[in-house]
């Protein structure tokens, strides 16, 4: 099967970073109360991860590998991500204020979203080329967004139901996420 198609299906459904691999759980639980915030967060994350995948790949193969600095990978990558988030925030503020207003509040939170770092590291571990790495970043982020939107929709609906008091908040969100994860398990072995 085409590597790009299998990547898309893989990161959306089969190896979804949130539902099948436990990455990015904090923002997944934290910003899934409302659909609109979830959408904003998803867009911001997609933007940053795609860009970060591209840049960290270049750093790995043009800086770390040639100079034998592989052990600095974590420090280098997280620094790139932190700087990138800052740059994106400032650039958006100058270039497109409306987009900045839509995504701005979520940007600082992305630094500590472990999907970003996990994708950057896994791109190198899996040995993708530059285009594949960027595409895999984009697909992983879309997978994150899908999970986030699904949970947000369900939680908005649960708000209206008469859940007992001790279920409201985090227990409800966690058990909902667990039941969602069951429905993702059927895709095992698809790619």
């Amino acid at each position: 099967m085409n590597v790009y198609l299998s990547m898309l299906i893989g990161f959306l459904l089969v190896n979804n970073y949130v539902m099948c691999q436990f990455f990015g759980i904090c923002p997944f639980l934290g910003v899934s109360k409302k659909f609109d915030t979830a959408l904003g967060m998803g867009m911001a994350v997609t933007f940053v991860i795609t860009l970060a995948s591209f840049i960290t790949w270049l750093i790995q193969y043009y800086l770390l590998t040639p100079f034998n600095l592989g052990y600095l990978q974590t420090i280098a990558f997280i620094l790139v991500i932190a700087v990138l988030v800052q740059v994106v925030e400032n650039a958006l503020k100058k270039l497109s204020f409306s987009l900045y207003q839509a995504l701005g509040v979520y940007l600082p939170l992305i630094t500590t979203n472990c999907v970003v770092l996990a994708v950057a590291i896994n791109n190198i571990t899996d040995g993708w080329n530059l285009l594949e790495a960027t595409f895999s970043g984009c697909c992983s982020a879309l997978g994150f967004t899908l999970a986030l939107l699904l949970l947000a929709c369900i939680r908005e609906r649960l708000e209206l139901s008469n859940m007992p008091k001790w279920m409201q908040g985090s227990p409800g969100a966690l058990i909902t996420a667990g039941l969602m994860a069951i429905s993702f398990m059927g895709f095992g072995g698809l790619i």
């Binding site: 985090s170 227990p171 966690l174 994860a181 069951i182």
Partner: peptide
């Protein structure tokens, strides 16, 4: 994955 979410959810209850 589901077991992890659900166990933690039950502990949070």
């Amino acid at each position: 994955v589901p077991g992890g979410f659900i166990t933690l959810g039950l502990m949070m209850i």
